[in-house]
């Protein structure tokens, strides 16, 4: 059940980042969130680099979900 909730949230957040619906998140998509989230451009760069595990400059839904699952389960399993 937790897995399903996590996947739903991950998908929702992915769409928030990929506002154009390209199917991936580019670095500039992440920088655009600067206007919506209380994070600095530097923080958003760090987030992008942390999620982009293969370092190709694009975040796939899989990479995003993997990163989010670590956060989600660390929050829900103290």
């Amino acid at each position: 059940p937790g897995q399903l909730a996590m996947l739903r949230k991950a998908q929702e957040f992915f769409q928030t980042c990929d506002a154009e619906g390209k199917g991936f998140i580019a670095r500039r998509d992440m920088q655009r969130l600067h206007q919506e989230l209380p994070l600095s451009l530097e923080d958003l760069e760090d987030v992008f680099d942390a999620l982009d595990t293969d370092g190709n400059g694009f975040l796939t839904p899989e990479e995003f979900t993997t990163g989010f699952s670590h956060f989600f389960f660390s929050q829900n399993n103290p």
């Binding site: 957040f13 989230l37 994070l39 942390a50 999620l51 956060f71 989600f72 929050q75």
Partner: peptide
């Protein structure tokens, strides 16, 4: 170990990022 430090930092920055997304979602009607 610099790698461990980088790992901990990125974990914190990711937590910050996802928490911001969560509050953005819950904050809007």
């Amino acid at each position: 170990d610099p790698n461990m430090k980088a790992g901990a930092t990125s974990e914190g920055v990711l937590a910050n990022f996802f928490n911001s997304l969560l509050s953005k979602k819950t904050g809007s009607p």
